[in-house]
Computed example of a mutant assay.
Amino acid sequence: MINEPPVGVVGLGLMGSSIVAALLLAGHSVKAIAPLASEAAEAPGRIEGQLRQCREAGLVGALPPYLGMLTVSEDYAALAGCQLVIECVIERPEIKASVYAKITAVVAADCIVGSNTSAIPISELQKHIDTPARFLGIHWAEPAFMTRFLEITCGEQTDPVFAERVFRLAHRWGKEPTLLRKDIRGFITNRLMYAVYREIFSQIETGHATAEDVDKAFRYDAGSWMTLMGIFRRMDYLGLKDFNAILPRLFPQLSNSTEVPEIMQRMVREGARGVHNDHGLYPYEPGEGQQWDDAFARFNREIHQLAAEYSAGKVKAYLQ
């Protein structure tokens, strides 16, 4: 798919770099803007490493053609000519607003501006752009170059024409995108996951289970079928009738707390960043976090191949 139109990416942290790698793989030349000097220095090497992971997984051939399609700059003028620009900076509205002003100052009036935000409503962010109709959410999952996930979200003022354009484009990126036409806080995937987070913290704080118990239950039950089928397909697979009896008994017992769990508050007070600094909900020996990062890279190569084998289209083909 070489020679796809250029795409801009603003913000080259872990997620931004991952998005750049995904776009390069899809054949786009990428104009990447590093708002921080440190990102400009670190991002090319990180992106090269991500592409190397893709090569090892058999998703890409030689690296030089892809790296030659990447431009990294601190000058927003490099975005001129892009038909789509994706913002991937810190989750602070005032910083994002500043970024949008710099983007729209150099791109055409019909250039789509998307945000990778996972927490801020699109309807709030699009108030900071001169033409809000062209603004929408384009929410990726890490690692963007491996997962099939992509969530496209319309704000109150988004013109559906732009959302449909990105939706079609996402299929060329190798994604199975969702299109959320109404802006709701947290979008789809985060609302699902944070409902799980609330319940698992409740189980731990009440002493009903340990972190190890919860993780094992999630890995070996849900983890055994999620790559093949989603929640509703799973309910169909189980036959549906038992849910009519189970749901009214179980729903009232689930946590409905609106408070940040004390465990998480303590983690923040202690400066814990999990595998990124070997301090998290689990204990880590020095360097163990990097081992988890390496293991996750290997796992993603394998799960990508498995997901491709059992994608929705292929499963339907098996059934025919």
Score class of each variant (00 low, 15 high):
Glu4His: 02
Met15Trp: 02
Ile19Ser: 07
Val20Lys: 11
Leu23Val: 10
Ala40Gln: 14
Ala43Asn: 07
Cys54Ser: 15
Leu59Glu: 09
Ala62Gly: 07
Pro65Met: 05
Leu67Pro: 05
Gly68Ile: 04
Thr71His: 07
Thr71Trp: 01
Ala77Glu: 14
Ala77Trp: 02
Ala78Tyr: 03
Leu79Ala: 12
Ala80His: 14
Gly81Ile: 08
Ile86Leu: 15
Glu87Asn: 10
Glu91His: 09
Arg92Tyr: 13
Lys96Asn: 10
Ala101Met: 08
Val107Ile: 14
Val107Asp: 03
Asn116Val: 07
Pro121Thr: 08
Pro132Val: 09
Trp140Tyr: 15
Met146Trp: 08
Phe149Gly: 03
Glu156Asp: 14
Phe162Val: 08
Val166Arg: 09
Leu169Gln: 13
Leu169His: 03
Asp183His: 09
Asp183Gln: 06
Arg185Tyr: 02
Phe187Ser: 08
Met193Pro: 00
Met193Ile: 02
Tyr197Cys: 08
Ser202Ile: 00
Gly207Leu: 07
His208Val: 01
Ala211Asp: 04
Asp213Pro: 12
Asp213Cys: 12
Asp213Gly: 13
Lys216Leu: 14
Phe218Pro: 00
Tyr220Trp: 14
Ala222Gln: 09
Ser224Ile: 05
Leu228Lys: 02
Arg233His: 08
Asp236Pro: 01
Tyr237Ser: 08
Arg249Ile: 04
Ser255Tyr: 00
Asn256Asp: 11
Ser257Pro: 04
Val260Phe: 11
Met264Cys: 04
Arg269Ala: 15
His276Gly: 00
Gly289Asn: 11
Asp293Ala: 12
Arg298Met: 08
Arg298Cys: 07
His304Ala: 02
Gly313Lys: 04
